[in-house]
Design a protein around this nucleic acid. Structure first.
Length: 256
DNA sequence: ATGGTTGCTTAGCAA
């Protein structure tokens, strides 16, 4: 079973790339982030024609997440489901077979110390509470998406340049470790323990040509599921060419 | 070097 996650940075701007990627890689489950569009404007017919069902939690202009699946999904849940008044569409969950799948777009946080930074840390706390409330580490659970955290310096091409950023600051990394301690394994790290694998390169300052990358997109799995991982990688080629997203897809194969 | 680029929406925000 092939699982993938990709921050597309606008599904409308990336429609042709998305359809081409589906045709080429045929993931069984594909988590998407930053759709930047309402559900009614998602290219549903084209995605269906490619052989996928879609669970959508869209939003105009910003955010928006989805899960695509070749087989039927059930028990869809959008949002953090905690009663907080929050208009930002950043989480959707669905069950595929006996697998619970979460597609998450964690807030970027802008600058350390800003209001957006506080929202990021609060959102991560709410995500941890969501896991406690709805799940346990004994289940087959996948948390996929743009978590906007580079867990370790080995996930950053230029650690000194990024150490004070919202992607690397200690409170963000501590929030990631809290998810790990709860019972989520970092499947991509497991496949590349030496690091040096990146999933995002800033459009600015020639980020990709200089390979000034960070690993902020993740496939996390509960322990029994992580043991079934057979491969995990970043499709770095998707970052190349005309009109790429600033993120590359992360792909993992499971013996399921 | 508070720079630089992209997308959405149309001047300014978010990343």
């Amino acid at each position: 079973m092939k699982i993938a996650t990709w921050n597309v940075n606008s599904v409308k701007a990336r429609k042709e790339r998305l359809l081409a990627w589906l045709a080429k890689h045929s993931p069984d489950v594909f988590c998407l982030q930053e759709l930047k569009t309402e559900d009614a404007r998602f290219p549903l017919e084209e995605v269906r024609a490619a052989g996928y069902e879609a669970a959508l939690h869209g939003q105009k202009t910003y955010n928006g997440v989805a899960i695509l699946s070749r087989t039927p999904m059930r028990d869809l849940r959008a949002g953090l489901d905690d009663g907080v008044d929050d208009a930002q569409a950043r989480l959707i969950a669905a069950t595929v077979g006996d697998l619970r799948v979460l597609s998450a777009y964690v807030p970027n946080g802008s600058e350390v110390g800003s209001d957006k930074w506080a929202y990021k840390l609060a959102w991560l706390e709410r995500l941890a509470a969501y896991l406690e409330r709805h799940h346990d580490p004994g289940q087959r659970l996948l948390l996929c998406g743009d978590l906007n955290i580079a867990p370790d310096d080995s996930d950053v091409a230029r650690p000194d340049e990024w150490k004070d950023s919202v992607l690397c600051a200690p409170p963000a990394r501590a929030a990631f470790q809290k998810l790990v301690r709860w019972g989520l394994c970092d499947v991509l790290r497991q496949a590349h323990p030496q690091g040096g694998v990146y999933s995002w390169w800033d459009y600015r300052m020639l980020g990709f040509p200089k390979n000034n990358g960070l690993r902020i997109d993740h496939i996390l799995a509960t322990p029994e599921l992580a043991k079934l991982a057979r491969s995990a990688q970043v499709d770095r080629d998707e970052r190349k060419g005309q009109s790429p997203s600033d993120h590359a897809p992360v792909v993992a194969e499971f013996a399921l």
